[in-house]
Design a protein around this nucleic acid. Structure first.
Lengths: 352, 352
DNA sequence: CTGAAAGCGCTTACAG
DNA sequence: CTGAAAGCGCTTACAG
């Protein structure tokens, strides 16, 4: 009168291998304490049956909570950019929590390397199983990556990448191509006798990301034999007064600037300057769909914003961790986001 | 010696209400056969505890399979547009199937209303619990919607909408705004003495979608007092010869057409004509990131393609059904997709 | 209208 | 190295 209706699942494997389900479970999860012989026999049957575990049952039985963490910049007065990735992370969280996954978010200060290191420490100490991180500081990120490797904690990068660090996945823009797109838009209606101004506003002296964007931007000019002269300026102070001072000088020296390209989300500062100095005829392109920029899109001072779906980056980053840790499914190593073009006319539907 | 360690879940509710978990379950799912009094008592406790059901356990115990279906156009020789929504549907499927959800896709012929009705019939007869549909034919869709309402089967529309049909959700473009964006791009570098040509290539005489797009397009010209004259042409045959014949005539009549806007994905036919007749100086904008169009983006005949994340539409549509039927969570009634701008420079990263 | 018991497909101590 | 048994938090017949 035994019920042998289980034609699949661990029970069936156990029946065929003439072992208990406990042993099957051990093999399934590469746990120790199974003779090599039994192990092989079971593995063959698993293959034969093309066994697919029931994640539902698995998660329910093992009441292990999986702890995922994210280490991202805090939203600051300067920019609310990180609101978007955060919202993607939260969205992932709300989908995963029913399956026993918890998410903790750690925020660091973009102007303070030490806060990154400190929060990374906290995060590791919290005993997390997987990490999403915005690798804003190279050295500190390397240390974190090393620690993760040591503890076998998978980690993904979003927004920018540091190659060769064994990250599970990179989810973010292809910066070179992004700069290239910027150049296309900038030159689309640019007269050939006008100069082009590249503006890099950043406290960090050597941000590799901006270099890549600029390289991409310049390579478009090369590829298309654009005759326009390119002027560039680095501004190390991010406040309006400093930016205005530098720009006044550049515009004074170069009377015929027809378009400006800002390599990051600080384009609103430039927009403000152009507006105040009655230079709104200059085409302006920059990065990121943040609050500060939208107003200038609205009143036509900024022509285009380039964006890389920051919301999606957060979402997909968390999902990549989930895939690895819960579903045990493979994850794409490089996941380049679309290079989105946002204008006054389409921004209201740009959710990411 | 009883274990009373369950401080949550149906057991705890049952304990507090002094009933069995079976009765709690009945109340939880609005099943009949519970006295009004007991029901009230249990509902109070549920509220008090802010009880969240464990979907894992629920899905595992009730081995009911949920059948979702999609009714979309088949990929035809004419266009592979529907490959994208299909891939989104498949992506959703692979995420949901571990949770006991099955997905069936039914394909109809875009040139044959009857095939829509027929497949709709088949789908309903298959006993599905939720439906995603591309409402390509109004009357047939209305019939399907009525049948769904009768059977209390939730349905979502993607790609285009038919309002007032009690759909669970619409996921797709805001067509008016999309046409508006098209006009912005078209005029961005257009000289004011040039004419603009609107081209509508479609066998259907009265496609409401194209009307909306065109209206949006025209309203941009109004809003901005664009001086350009607008010429429009309707082409009822979709083959290249017919299109070429009509266009030859229009271009003959109007010597100074500077830009053309095609209201759908058939922009590649126009591109082909422009190329063959050495008119590639005409700016060309149209719809959809389909194989046929990409080549012309590549060789600069098409300037911009406008897209509405068809992949995402399929994915989100299925997810909306999942949310309703499995999670019992609310769903947004209108979900307008971003209006994406695809160019030669950024298309390689446009996955949707 | 209500409850006791079995069961979903796994995992986990525990005992040997 | 292996297995019997209990249990995860629900749902489902079945019996009353």
């Amino acid at each position: 009168m035994e019920k042998e209706n289980a034609l699949f699942g661990v029970k069936e494997i156990a029946r065929r291998a003439k072992v208990s389900t406990a042993t099957v479970d051990r093999v399934l999860h590469n746990r120790t304490g199974v003779s090599e012989k039994t192990k092989q026999r079971i593995n063959e049957i698993i293959k034969e049956m093309d066994y697919q575990p029931n994640i539902l049952a698995s998660r329910l039985a093992s009441r292990k909570v999986i702890n995922l963490a994210a280490l991202i910049p805090d939203v600051s007065e300067e920019t609310d950019f990180w609101l978007a990735p955060l919202s993607g992370i939260r969205r992932a969280e709300s989908e995963m929590k029913q399956y026993g996954v918890q998410v903790q978010v750690f925020f660091f200060d973009l102007n303070d390397k030490d806060s990154f290191a400190e929060k990374a420490r906290e995060m590791i100490d919290a005993g997390v199983h997987g990490i999403l991180v915005s690798p804003s500081f190279i050295e500190e990120t390397k240390k974190l990556a090393a620690e993760c490797s040591r503890r076998k904690i998978p980690f993904v990068f979003i927004d920018s990448n540091i190659p060769d660090l064994q990250s599970l996945s990179y989810i973010g823009p292809h910066l070179r191509k992004s700069g290239y797109v910027g150049a296309k838009l900038l030159t689309y209606r640019l007269e050939s006798d006008k100069k082009v101004l590249i503006i890099n506003i950043s406290k960090e002296v050597d941000n590799f990301n901006y270099h890549e964007i600029e390289e991409g931007f310049r390579s478009y000019f090369n590829d298309h034999n654009q005759p326009n002269e390119i002027v560039r300026i680095d501004i190390r102070e991010t406040d309006y007064q400093s930016v205005a001072r530098h720009l006044t000088y550049v515009f004074h020296l170069n009377k015929d600037i027809g378009a400006a390209f800002v390599t990051n989300s600080r384009v609103h500062t430039v927009a403000s300057f152009l507006k105040n100095s009655h230079r709104t005829h200059v085409s302006l392109i920059g990065y990121d769909f943040v609050k500060e920029n939208v107003g200038y899109l609205e009143n036509n001072v900024i022509d285009f914003l380039i964006c890389h779906r920051p919301d999606d980056q957060g979402y997909r980053g968390m999902m990549a961790l989930y895939q690895t840790l819960v579903i045990n499914a493979p994850v794409t190593k490089q996941n380049f986001m679309p290079i989105d073009i946002v204008t006054k006319e389409n921004y209201e539907f740009y959710q990411n």
